[in-house]
């Protein structure tokens, strides 16, 4: 019983991380129909920014997280202006090629700057250690992850569903041409959402060092998980990716805990089956 709860807890924390890292991708795919395989590179950038700030300049963890968010967001906007925007009308194949190219370059640069080893991260003492609650050991850092994820998911939902900007985003996802005709500046909406999406990926990358590790192959290793979240969760909403990410997190942790000899096999099988059964995602938009 205790182990079951522990697995559930770890899985949810892991799922929250996946949600933060992939929510941007789901918007990119939903809004601009743009296949961005380089999304993981922004998460990796956030991770390295966090590590460098903390180790070389002694920035406190929370400050480093914030800066990781902004660094990835800025990098996202710069790349969007320089490269991505030329490819919105191009074929999916072109988009795949461009972003795979970016992934290779990002991996090479990260290896050149930091070497291929895992980056260590020293958590502040408040966030390390265990709490024991009704016989279940709760890792403090994973509680922190769950809290951050929940707060951000809530904030994103409020922005998307209660603000004028959120309405513009939803309108653009539904039908970019009609939204444009109604006077919404779709390209500006997209730039902002893209920046926030990349920023969140960076934040996720920084938060995830403790759980997922950080090395130059990060963008390739986790791109499948991001695509999985988007594929299963559907594009353009928040509920879908959140549900999918939590499900995925729990399934992955449970699979590794209870059936280590099968490993990732179950996960990929579930993905293929789900895609066959529901090509539009778990929570399809009406």
């Amino acid at each position: 019983m205790a182990s079951l709860l522990g697995v559930l807890f770890d899985g949810l924390a892991y799922g929250m991380l996946l949600f933060l890292m992939s929510v941007g991708l789901s918007v990119t795919l939903g809004l601009m129909n743009f296949v961005n395989l380089a999304h993981g590179a922004f998460a990796m950038l956030g991770g390295y920014v966090c590590v460098v700030l903390m180790q070389r300049w002694g920035v406190p963890f929370l400050g480093a997280l914030l800066l990781a968010f902004f660094a990835s967001a800025v990098a996202g906007v710069v790349l969007e202006r320089l490269l991505y925007r030329h490819f919105y009308r191009r074929s999916h194949l072109d988009q795949v090629l461009l972003t795979i190219g970016l992934v290779f370059v990002a991996i090479a640069i990260a290896t050149w700057l930091f070497g291929s080893q895992q980056q260590p991260l020293r958590l502040p003492p408040i966030l390390s250690g265990q709490w024991t609650l009704v016989g279940v050991d709760l890792n403090v850092y994973r509680c922190f992850l769950l809290a951050v994820g929940a707060v951000l998911a809530f904030a994103l939902t409020v922005v998307l569903e209660r603000t004028r900007f959120g309405a513009a985003v939803r309108a653009s996802v539904d039908d970019a041409r009609v939204a444009e005709a109604l006077g919404i500046r779709v390209s500006l909406v997209f730039q902002l959402t893209f920046a926030v999406g990349c920023g969140l990926a960076g934040l996720g990358g920084a938060l995830g060092i403790e759980v997922l590790g950080l090395d130059p192959t990060f963008p390739l290793k986790y791109i499948v998980y991001f695509l999985l979240v988007v594929a299963v969760g559907g594009t353009g909403s928040l509920k879908g990716p959140l549900l999918a990410a939590l499900l995925l997190g729990v399934a992955d942790v449970a699979g590794k805990y209870y059936l280590p000899q099968v490993g990732a096999f179950i996960l990929y099988a579930i993905m293929v089956l789900l895609l066959i059964a529901r090509p539009q995602g778990l929570v399809a938009r009406a």
Binding site: G263, F265, L275
Partner: peptide, 28 residues
């Protein structure tokens, strides 16, 4: 039949998924 149906994006993900599936199978 799995690959032929669907859009570019679903194809991309199904083929990636199938590839990973076989890799894991051979690994296990």
């Amino acid at each position: 039949p799995l690959v032929v149906r669907g859009t570019d994006l679903t194809r991309l993900m199904i083929t990636t998924g199938l590839g990973l599936l076989l890799f894991e199978l051979a690994n296990r």
